[in-house]
């Protein structure tokens, strides 16, 4: 049975191995140079300001590759679900070959178990390898640009262990959808739609509630104010506070003295203490006093950087649970509903 499962999978395996080899080659060729350039650049940049400028330039120079590789890992589970999962059973059902293979001396259950195991292991391996390669390659860039923390929704999904759970889920989702729809093309379309929805919905709706978040209300000080701006004449004046390093900010609101959320603060940027002065332009100490006197504070809800691994663990567990459910469903459906 393993022979058959492998025989039916080998084209996929070869294509994937080829793609992974290409990725590994790219990472191997450019990775060491990148790390080296960052190490040398950050050691020899001299002053703090120059070092910040170096880091910014360094990141911008490689942002395209960084984004491309991150997106690659991000869409990989979907691709696995689309091209491995969805056709796995549906192609057999469409061609009628299930009636050939289910009449050999192998039970349907064992047949499915073998095919799911091979596909699942391959999906997890592929995604694990891709994550390892891309994470290693991206490391100097993430140090250069700390604002791209691994807690950020998009990066969270391409780092650590969750990508392998995504890949497994996408694969089993594709298999389940294909088993029900019985035709590869509709199955691929539905798999893609559902998995994309999951990938969007989880960071927006589910992940923020997996662990208790921290909420702080802080006064604005010259040390934590990142910006004071208005989008145009007559628009509300907004304040932005720097975030805790590496944390994932879930919500940010400015509140007034009574604790009510406000759209803007009642200060003028054109005249008075908060009008920009000096070079580079910055608000004066009187401006902070005035904001403080008016009672404005920033309420920030976030998950700190040290929650990365617990969050990864919980989300991985969640995905594995759903994957197991999908596999169970496929077993049930195959045994009871299909001839």
């Amino acid at each position: 049975m393993i022979w058959l499962a492998w025989r039916q999978f080998r084209v996929h395996a070869a294509l994937t191995a080829g793609a992974l080899a290409a990725l590994a080659l790219y990472v191997a060729l450019t990775g060491p140079g990148l790390a080296d350039a960052y190490a040398r650049g950050s050691a020899g940049c001299g002053g703090e300001e120059a070092c910040v400028r170096f880091a910014q330039t360094f990141f911008l120079d490689h942002q395209l590759s960084f984004t491309a590789l991150s997106v690659l890992v991000l869409v990989l589970p979907g691709v696995i679900g689309l091209f491995w999962g969805a056709p796995l059973i549906s192609r057999e059902l469409e061609a009628g070959t299930h009636r050939l293979v289910w009449n050999q001396s192998v039970t349907r259950g064992r047949w499915l178990a073998t095919r799911l195991s091979l596909g699942g292991v391959a999906a997890a391996l592929t995604s694990g390898l891709a994550v390892a390669l891309v994470s290693w390659w991206s490391e100097p860039l993430q140090r250069a640009a700390p604002q791209h923390a691994r807690m950020e929704p998009l990066l969270f999904g391409v780092r650590g262990v969750v990508p392998f759970a995504y890949a497994l889920l996408a694969f089993l989702l594709g298999v389940a959808v294909g088993t029900v729809l019985r035709r590869p093309l509709p199955a691929m379309a539905v798999t893609l739609a559902v998995f994309t929805a999951v990938q969007i919905a989880v960071p927006l709706v589910v992940r923020p509630h997996l662990l208790p978040s921290t909420t702080v209300e802080a006064r604005f000080t010259p040390g934590n104010l990142r910006g004071i701006f208005s989008e145009g004449p007559g628009e509300p004046v907004q304040l932005e506070m720097s975030k805790p390093a590496g944390a994932w900010t879930l919500a940010e609101q400015t509140i007034d003295g009574s604790g009510t959320v406000v759209k803007g603060v009642d200060v003028s940027l054109d005249e008075g203490p908060c009008a920009p002065q000096g070079s580079p332009p910055a608000p004066s100490a009187q401006c902070f006093e005035m904001i403080d006197r008016l009672g404005y504070r920033q309420r920030t809800t976030y998950l700190t950087a040290d929650r990365f691994w617990p969050l990864q663990g919980i989300e991985t567990g969640l995905y594995l649970l759903v994957s197991a459910g999908l596999a169970g469903f496929t077993f049930f459906w195959l045994r009871r509903r299909i001839s």
Binding site: G96, T97, N103, S105, V106
Partner: peptide
């Protein structure tokens, strides 16, 4: 089809005689 043993005792050539293309 209650198990591998039973499957081994019965052969089935389905309509349209499917094979892997």
């Amino acid at each position: 089809a209650s198990g591998a043993g039973q499957l081994a005792r019965v052969g089935f050539v389905a309509q349209d005689t499917p094979t892997y293309a």
